[in-house]
């Protein structure tokens, strides 16, 4: 099993920032169908701030990379995705502790703890048409990063048929059916970037 250092996590989140930058308009389009049309721009701003923070003062451990990234997201996003993604990364970072290198089983365990915390904070589970529909199957497929990417994409695709039970989209009731959840779509970007970072090693 491979070991991952701080550089791996920096490459992951910097690549993810690039994806959020490129996909911001698509995410906002999804969010204008059932949300308040700010998800793409909020996440682009937040993830670009993460990439800038990681470049300015590269943290020395995987845990510190995730903690700094989570903190940065929370203070720059402004929407609900700030505390949600911030919780995911910070809780995962705490789980990794001070280790300089972590194995893939530890990564899987840490990200699962992060997703558990998101689920608790949001009061949502898979099936509610939220980011959990992509996050939960993705962490269940870890430590196989390619499988996690596929599971996230399938989970996001499956939200099209679901009726929203949480967040702003839930006000729409039946009218939320037929649109992909923007949070689930953005969660796939995170796992896409993770799979790419792993494939590059």
């Amino acid at each position: 099993m491979a070991f991952r250092d701080a550089e791996f996590f920096r490459r992951w989140l910097t690549a993810a920032a690039g994806s959020f930058d490129a996909e911001a308009d698509r995410l906002t389009e999804l969010d204008s169908a059932i949300g308040d049309a700010d998800h793409g721009s909020n996440m682009r701003r937040g993830m670009l701030a993460v990439a800038a923070a990681l470049e300015k003062e590269p943290p020395g451990t995987p845990g510190a990379v995730l903690l700094l990234s989570g903190r940065t997201l929370v203070s720059t996003v402004g929407g609900a995705s700030g505390p949600l993604y911030g919780t995911l990364l910070r809780r995962a970072g705490k789980a990794l502790g001070d280790a300089e290198r972590v194995d893939d089983a530890a990564v899987a365990e840490a990200l699962t703890a992060g997703v558990d915390a998101v689920s608790q904070l949001a009061g949502a589970v898979a099936g509610d048409k939220t980011m959990l529909d992509a996050l939960r199957p993705a962490v269940e497929a870890l430590p196989d990063y390619a499988a996690a990417r596929e599971a996230a994409a399938r989970g996001a695709e499956a939200t099209v048929a679901l009726r929203a039970r949480k967040g702003r989209a839930s006000y729409l009731g039946e009218r939320s059916v037929g649109h992909m959840d923007p949070g689930a779509a953005s969660s796939t970007l995170l796992f896409h970037a993770l799979a790419r970072a792993a494939a590059d090693e």
Partner: peptide, 14 residues
């Protein structure tokens, strides 16, 4: 509502 509630909950939890 929404992010206002979530942010406070997160600050209390984290």
């Amino acid at each position: 509502l929404g992010s206002a509630v979530l942010t406070v909950q997160m600050m209390l939890a984290e």
